[in-house]
Write a protein that binds this DNA or RNA. Structure first.
Lengths: 223, 223
DNA sequence: GTCTATAGCCCGATAGAC
DNA sequence: GTCTATCGGGCTATAGAC
């Protein structure tokens, strides 16, 4: 009985530490985030970081494991849809319009999902953490890349390869361009907010962004 | 005589400190970069940071002033060209093809300049510094934005407004999209290198990127 | 599982010699 | 203009009481 309760309490401590770590590491970066601040933000004793995660670095990795899991669960449904769809048809028998009719809605659905993820306040910290890792990759980037980014890229590249009937290299470059059209709303967010005189990118702003983004993705994919 | 030499020596120290600071702050971020490391990288005594810049923060701002000046000098020629061109014609008298013929080459020239800047090793540190500031803006971002980013955005938005004969808001959104198409090659550089099996983005890779980027910009601007 | 206390180190900044 | 020496404080990690 007591063992069970103790284990439960431990799990809770683990969880609040990870949740606080996502916020603090995103705000301050790995080096500037102090263990004192991490413990304080989690309302937990300083020594427990070492007890549960064998140090600050361990907590950092645990934070990335959590956000990667959550990212995957957001993207997986549409990613699976694309995978299944690509395997379902014999694409060589379909003409350009046929391929477009089936695949374009899937691509735009992926774009919607991704853009909402990128601009939502919920994922603000996740994007910051991953962008930081892009600039100076550590083991944490390796984990996110192989677990989340690469599988997602692979599906979109395959989709665009069939959609345009082109080679792998060009499909990849177009995929990066599409990604750029989406990511810009997160990456230069501060500049965009200043220029558009917005204070946030919420539902209202998203309704202005989405049509432009859709049009631009279609333009880029079929250019 | 001696005064002059002393002043010269001081200027040199100032300069090597700033150059080292650009490297170190870009690599480590403001908090994680230590004054000892900054002084060591510049091969200069620790106390001189305080003597010349009144502290670490002052050196940080001086680094941003330097990169902003250099960015401006790289972009100014084509920015001025656009400004002059926009003022030169009476655009209401020109039809769509006429406007396109004059303005599209200017837009692509700006894109070339910007993409080369973004992918060059020389500016790797500049991009890192500015991207960090985008995520957590300080006074340094304010400086880069008002001195470099806003003036540049203003010209491109004006150009696209005339080119598409559209309103300010849509022109701005398209400008951000174009920016996304360019910036992606820096922002997700690590992911792209992994996926394309490149080790760098040099002249060779740029020759593959440029046609795709041009095609995509045209597609987005005229979609 | 949680806490206090502390070891050992690195930090930014400055005083004062040269 | 440059250097050494040092202050006061925050850092990560851990030992040991509860």
């Amino acid at each position: 009985m007591n063992e069970f309760k103790e284990a439960e309490r431990g799990d809770l401590t683990r969880r609040v530490l990870i949740d606080a770590a996502i916020k603090v590491f995103a705000r301050d970066g790995f080096h500037a985030a102090s263990t004192r601040e991490l413990a304080h933000a989690a309302n937990v004793n300083l020594a427990l970081i070492n007890y549960y995660f064998k140090g600050k670095q361990g907590l950092y990795l645990a934070a990335f494991e959590k956000i990667t899991t959550q990212l995957k669960s957001e993207i997986s449904p549409v990613e699976d849809k694309i995978r299944l769809c690509l395997e379902k048809y014999d694409w060589s028998t379909l003409d350009k319009d046929g391929r477009k009719e089936i695949l374009l809605p899937l691509l735009l659905e992926m774009a919607n999902t991704f853009l909402k993820l990128l601009t939502s306040d919920k994922t603000k910290e996740w994007a910051q953490l991953i962008m930081r890792e892009q600039q100076e990759p550590t083991a944490a980037f390796e984990y996110v890349f192989s677990t989340f980014i690469r599988p997602m890229l692979t599906q979109i590249i395959r989709l665009i390869k069939v959609l345009r009937n082109t080679d792998e290299e060009e499909a990849a470059m177009i995929t990066f361009s599409v990604f750029g059209l989406l990511a810009v709303w997160r990456v230069v967010r501060t500049g965009i907010l200043r220029r558009m005189k917005w204070t946030t990118i919420g539902e209202e702003e998203l309704q202005k962004i989405l049509p432009v983004v859709h049009r631009n993705i279609i333009a880029v994919v079929f250019a």
